[in-house]
């Protein structure tokens, strides 16, 4: 995934940033960090649905080549609605497959 734009969607904590960095290393990509605009360069970006609205996320993912959803605990979400929105967003991506995606369970890695 070196020449791709990859987005990691997780919870609004430092763990998402850490996992984005870990995934970029694993897939030989460049770590880009938290970003909520349209990406210009290849690399691994991340955000959570506390950083952008679902509608913004719907638009933004069109500009990526691959998505990683981080499987995280409900407790990590201070705002439970962000958790629910993230789960439903995953459901949308899973059912409609607007871009390729993986669910990454870091507890197993």
């Amino acid at each position: 995934m070196k020449d791709k734009k990859v987005l990691v969607i997780g919870d609004p904590t430092q763990e998402t940033d850490a996992m984005c960095s870990l995934l970029s290393g694993r897939y030989s990509g460049r770590y880009m960090g938290l970003y909520t605009k349209v990406p210009k360069q290849n690399g691994f970006y991340h955000f959570s649905l506390a950083d952008v609205t679902v509608l913004e996320a719907e638009e933004l993912i069109k500009h990526y080549d691959h998505l990683f959803f981080l499987k995280t605990k409900k407790e990590n979400f201070r705002d439970k609605q962000v958790f629910h929105a993230t789960r439903n967003f995953l459901l949308y991506v899973k059912n409609w497959k607007p871009i390729p995606y993986d669910v990454f369970d870091f507890a197993k890695h």
């Binding site: 609205t53 679902v54 509608l55 996320a57 719907e58 638009e59 439903n88 967003f89 459901l91 949308y92 059912n95 409609w96 607007p98």
Partner: peptide
Amino acid sequence: RLHYKHERRTEQLFKPDQ
């Protein structure tokens, strides 16, 4: 509320036959 900016595809999570 971005009424006129989006297709709002995320507001239909399932395909009709799902």
